[in-house]
Amino acid sequence: MLEGKVKWFNSEKGFGFIEVEGQDDVFVHFSAIQGEGFKTLEEGQAVSFEIVEGNRGPQAANVTKEA
């Protein structure tokens, strides 16, 4: 699992990017966010995740919000 911070997330469109120190930003789709209820992320929020190869390159999977 990697750790990063949410760079930005558009809850209307359901996607955004996660910043990872020393690496390129990683695309995140709302469907990759773990948990119940409305799936969104806040700018600057700490998250842990895995990287998988998507249709358009690397993207986040199994995203969990850090306490």
Rank of each mutant, 00 (worst) to 15 (best):
Met1Ala: 08
Met1Arg: 14
Met1Trp: 07
Met1Gly: 13
Met1Val: 09
Met1Cys: 04
Met1Glu: 09
Met1Asp: 05
Leu2Gly: 09
Leu2Thr: 11
Leu2Pro: 04
Leu2Phe: 12
Leu2Lys: 14
Glu3His: 15
Glu3Met: 12
Glu3Phe: 11
Glu3Ile: 11
Glu3Trp: 09
Glu3Ser: 14
Gly4Tyr: 02
Gly4Cys: 02
Gly4Leu: 01
Gly4Thr: 01
Gly4Lys: 01
Gly4His: 02
Gly4Arg: 01
Lys5Val: 08
Lys5Tyr: 07
Lys5Arg: 14
Lys5Ala: 08
Val6His: 00
Val6Cys: 05
Val6Thr: 06
Val6Arg: 00
Val6Trp: 01
Val6Lys: 00
Val6Gln: 01
Val6Glu: 00
Lys7Arg: 10
Lys7Cys: 03
Lys7Phe: 03
Lys7Val: 08
Lys7Leu: 06
Lys7His: 08
Trp8Phe: 13
Trp8Ala: 03
Trp8His: 06
Trp8Thr: 03
Phe9Tyr: 07
Phe9Glu: 00
Phe9Met: 03
Phe9Val: 04
Phe9Arg: 01
Asn10Cys: 04
Asn10Val: 07
Asn10Phe: 14
Asn10Ala: 09
Asn10Pro: 02
Asn10Met: 10
Ser11Pro: 14
Ser11Ile: 13
Ser11Leu: 10
Ser11Tyr: 13
Ser11Ala: 09
Ser11Gly: 06
Glu12Leu: 10
Glu12Trp: 11
Glu12Asp: 13
Glu12Pro: 11
Glu12Phe: 12
Lys13Gln: 11
Lys13Thr: 07
Lys13Asp: 04
Lys13Met: 10
Lys13Ile: 07
Lys13Tyr: 12
Gly14Gln: 03
Gly14Cys: 03
Gly14Ser: 02
Gly14Met: 03
Gly14Tyr: 02
Gly14Asn: 03
Phe15Tyr: 13
Phe15Leu: 05
Phe15Ile: 05
Phe15Cys: 04
Phe15Ser: 03
Gly16Cys: 01
Gly16Gln: 00
Gly16Ser: 00
Gly16Leu: 01
Gly16Tyr: 01
Gly16Ile: 01
Gly16Glu: 00
Gly16Asn: 00
Gly16Pro: 00
Phe17Tyr: 10
Phe17Arg: 03
Phe17Leu: 05
Phe17Gln: 04
Phe17Ser: 03
Phe17Trp: 11
Ile18Ser: 00
Ile18Met: 03
Ile18Glu: 00
Ile18His: 00
Ile18Trp: 01
Glu19Ser: 08
Glu19Gln: 13
Glu19Cys: 06
Glu19Asn: 12
Glu19His: 09
Glu19Pro: 02
Glu19Gly: 06
Glu19Lys: 10
Val20Lys: 10
Val20Asp: 02
Val20Pro: 03
Val20Phe: 07
Val20Met: 12
Glu21His: 09
Glu21Ala: 08
Glu21Met: 14
Gly22Pro: 03
Gly22Thr: 08
Gly22Leu: 11
Gly22Trp: 04
Gly22Asp: 09
Gly22Lys: 09
Gln23Pro: 04
Gln23Lys: 12
Gln23Met: 10
Gln23Ser: 09
Gln23Val: 10
Asp24His: 13
Asp24Thr: 13
Asp24Pro: 09
Asp24Ala: 15
Asp24Glu: 12
Asp24Gly: 15
Asp24Arg: 14
Asp24Tyr: 09
Asp24Met: 14
Asp24Phe: 05
Asp24Trp: 06
Asp25Ile: 04
Asp25Lys: 04
Asp25Gly: 04
Asp25Pro: 06
Asp25Trp: 07
Asp25Met: 06
Asp25Val: 06
Asp25Gln: 06
Asp25Thr: 14
Val26Gly: 00
Val26Tyr: 08
Val26Met: 06
Val26Phe: 06
Val26Asp: 00
Val26Arg: 03
Val26Gln: 02
Val26Glu: 01
Val26Ala: 04
Phe27Met: 03
Phe27Arg: 02
Phe27Glu: 02
Phe27Ala: 03
Phe27Leu: 04
Phe27Lys: 02
Phe27Gly: 02
Phe27Cys: 02
Phe27Pro: 03
Phe27Asp: 00
Val28Asn: 00
Val28Gln: 00
Val28Leu: 07
Val28Met: 05
Val28Glu: 00
Val28Phe: 11
Val28Asp: 00
Val28Ile: 14
His29Ser: 04
His29Ile: 05
His29Gln: 03
His29Trp: 10
His29Glu: 03
His29Asp: 03
His29Thr: 04
His29Lys: 02
His29Pro: 03
Phe30Ser: 07
Phe30Pro: 01
Phe30Asp: 02
Phe30Trp: 07
Phe30His: 13
Ser31Asn: 10
Ser31Met: 14
Ser31Lys: 13
Ser31Gly: 12
Ser31Pro: 07
Ser31Asp: 05
Ser31Thr: 06
Ala32Lys: 10
Ala32Thr: 07
Ala32Ile: 02
Ala32Asp: 11
Ala32Gln: 07
Ile33Glu: 01
Ile33Met: 04
Ile33His: 01
Gln34Lys: 15
Gln34Leu: 08
Gln34Pro: 08
Gln34Arg: 09
Gln34Ile: 10
Gln34Thr: 15
Gln34Asp: 05
Gly35Thr: 11
Gly35His: 15
Gly35Pro: 04
Gly35Asn: 12
Gly35Gln: 13
Gly35Val: 08
Glu36Ile: 09
Glu36Pro: 10
Glu36His: 10
Glu36Met: 12
Glu36Val: 15
Glu36Ser: 07
Gly37Phe: 06
Gly37Glu: 08
Gly37Cys: 04
Gly37Trp: 05
Gly37Tyr: 12
Gly37Val: 06
Gly37Ile: 06
Gly37Lys: 09
Gly37Ala: 09
Phe38Arg: 08
Phe38Ser: 10
Phe38Cys: 05
Phe38Gln: 10
Phe38Val: 07
Phe38Gly: 07
Phe38Asn: 07
Phe38Asp: 14
Lys39Ser: 09
Lys39Leu: 13
Lys39Ile: 07
Lys39Trp: 06
Lys39His: 08
Thr40Val: 13
Thr40Gly: 14
Thr40Leu: 10
Thr40Asp: 13
Thr40Lys: 08
Thr40Glu: 07
Thr40Phe: 10
Thr40Met: 09
Thr40Trp: 06
Leu41Gly: 02
Leu41Trp: 02
Leu41Ser: 02
Leu41Glu: 01
Leu41Ile: 07
Glu42Lys: 11
Glu42Trp: 10
Glu42Val: 14
Glu42Tyr: 11
Glu42His: 11
Glu42Cys: 07
Glu42Asp: 11
Glu43His: 11
Glu43Leu: 08
Glu43Tyr: 15
Glu43Pro: 07
Gly44Lys: 10
Gly44Asp: 06
Gly44Phe: 08
Gly44Pro: 03
Gly44Ala: 08
Gly44Thr: 05
Gly44Val: 02
Gln45Asp: 12
Gln45Arg: 08
Gln45Tyr: 06
Gln45Trp: 15
Gln45Lys: 07
Gln45Cys: 05
Ala46Trp: 04
Ala46Asn: 12
Ala46Gly: 11
Ala46Pro: 12
Ala46Thr: 14
Ala46His: 10
Val47Cys: 04
Val47Ala: 02
Val47Leu: 06
Val47Lys: 00
Val47Asn: 00
Val47Phe: 01
Val47His: 00
Ser48Ile: 07
Ser48Leu: 09
Ser48Phe: 12
Phe49Asp: 00
Phe49Gly: 02
Phe49Ala: 02
Phe49Met: 05
Phe49Ser: 01
Phe49Pro: 00
Phe49Tyr: 05
Glu50Pro: 01
Glu50Ile: 14
Glu50Gly: 14
Glu50Asn: 14
Glu50Arg: 15
Glu50Ser: 14
Glu50Lys: 11
Glu50Phe: 15
Ile51Thr: 10
Ile51Gln: 05
Ile51Leu: 15
Ile51His: 04
Val52Tyr: 13
Val52Cys: 07
Val52Gly: 14
Val52Glu: 15
Val52Ala: 12
Val52Pro: 02
Glu53Ala: 09
Glu53Arg: 12
Glu53His: 08
Glu53Gly: 12
Glu53Leu: 08
Gly54Arg: 12
Gly54Thr: 14
Gly54Ala: 13
Gly54Cys: 04
Gly54Gln: 05
Gly54Asp: 13
Asn55Val: 08
Asn55Leu: 08
Asn55Thr: 11
Asn55His: 15
Asn55Ala: 10
Arg56Lys: 13
Arg56Asn: 08
Arg56Met: 06
Arg56Ser: 11
Arg56Pro: 13
Arg56Trp: 13
Arg56Ile: 09
Arg56Thr: 07
Arg56Leu: 12
Arg56Tyr: 15
Arg56Glu: 10
Gly57Cys: 04
Gly57Phe: 07
Gly57Thr: 04
Gly57Glu: 03
Pro58Asn: 08
Pro58Val: 09
Pro58Ser: 12
Pro58Met: 08
Pro58Leu: 09
Pro58His: 15
Pro58Trp: 10
Pro58Arg: 08
Gln59Pro: 01
Gln59Ile: 13
Gln59Phe: 13
Gln59Lys: 07
Gln59Asp: 02
Gln59Ser: 07
Ala60Ser: 05
Ala60Arg: 00
Ala60Gly: 05
Ala60His: 01
Ala60Asn: 00
Ala60Gln: 00
Ala61Gly: 10
Ala61Met: 11
Ala61Cys: 05
Ala61Asp: 14
Asn62Ser: 08
Asn62Glu: 05
Asn62Ala: 07
Asn62Cys: 05
Asn62Trp: 03
Val63Ser: 01
Val63Thr: 02
Val63Trp: 00
Val63Gln: 00
Val63Gly: 01
Thr64His: 12
Thr64Ala: 14
Thr64Glu: 10
Thr64Lys: 10
Thr64Phe: 14
Thr64Val: 13
Lys65Gln: 11
Lys65Gly: 14
Lys65Tyr: 15
Lys65Glu: 08
Lys65Phe: 07
Glu66Lys: 15
Glu66Tyr: 11
Glu66Val: 11
Glu66Trp: 15
Glu66Gly: 15
Ala67Ser: 15
Ala67Asn: 12
Ala67Gln: 12
Ala67Met: 06
Ala67Arg: 12
Ala67Glu: 05
Ala67Gly: 14
Ala67Val: 12
Ala67Trp: 09
